[in-house]
Design a protein around this nucleic acid. Structure first.
Ligand code: FES
Ligand code: FES
Lengths: 144, 144
DNA sequence: TTTTATTCGGATAAAATTGTCATAAATAAA
DNA sequence: TTTATTTATGACAATTTTATCCGAATAAAA
């Protein structure tokens, strides 16, 4: 569904958000530990997210990653997915044709667009804040 | 969403089905040409589908692949996806946790299972025959 | 029975993705 | 200003996925 990189990204964002809610900036090693993701790879992914402006970072002692409280309500999971996997999830053809087209669709197009659209809506209506509060409450987990 | 191999598999099955509806057995080169997939790779994939019993093959002159007319109504897209990609599409965690669990779910679980379930239902209710007749009618395409 | 056409299957290769490492750049504290 | 700590980044490595190649097996036709 999503790439490994994208899964790492979503988990990292959620964990960082929980810490930001407690005004704690987090180091990449801490992120890796709490998400079960490889540290160096996650660091690279965070670089991409930082460039796209959906996470803030600070180098040096007392540095790390953080997400502004206002931002984490605006940032939707769809933004993370788009930043890492691009728009293929939202617009790509289910059978891998180079373009999804209404005029000359692939055989599964009509069935596929419904599901794809619901996935998109789901991602667009779920904010990082929503997921971070769930994690804070302890009802969900990032590792297994 | 699906692996490349799975996309090749679905397209191949649909094309073979259209030919079987006209009582024509098709060679792998013909399949590759009409699906835009690499021939040798498709051949290997067909081997898997053949072992799983969702396509029939015959070696030698006048050999090739075919799908029994009764079977192509019974075979659903879900069967092809399962044969190639396994059950991760139906049961895998959206964040890549080693298991999707209701007891200790990941943060997106509740949102994700809905979409995943609709995808599953969609695949389970779409038969190879349905898609083959669409292709025969010329309203859809396998290549672009 | 021999020839020919085809799938089957294992070895190999190429490409993409995932992951690591080392060094540079930045920044805060001493 | 120097030092310690942390992110940033590009090169490299490992793994997985995708794709190719070729000889063996099979079966129809000549
Ligand atoms: S053309 Fe394939 S999903 Fe739209
Ligand atoms: S636990 Fe992640 S989708 Fe169910």
């Amino acid at each position: 569904m999503f790439s490994k990189a994208c899964e790492h990204a979503i988990k990292a964002m959620i964990y960082i958000a929980t810490q930001s809610l407690e005004n704690k900036r987090v180091k990449i090693g801490d992120v890796a530990k709490h998400t079960g993701s490889p540290e160096a790879y996650t660091a690279k992914i965070m670089g991409t997210l930082n460039k796209q402006g959906i996470v803030s970072s600070l180098t040096g002692p007392y540095g790390g990653f953080e997400i502004n409280a206002k931002m984490m309500k605006q940032i939707k999971v769809s933004d993370i997915v788009f930043a890492i996997d691009g728009d293929s999830v939202y617009n790509g053809c289910g059978l891998g044709l180079n373009e999804c087209s209404e005029e000359k669709p692939c055989p599964i197009h009509n069935e596929f667009v419904k599901v794809r659209s619901e996935l998109k809506t789901m991602l667009e209506t779920t904010s990082v804040f929503d997921l971070a509060t769930k994690l804070q409450s302890g009802e969900v987990t990032l590792v297994r």
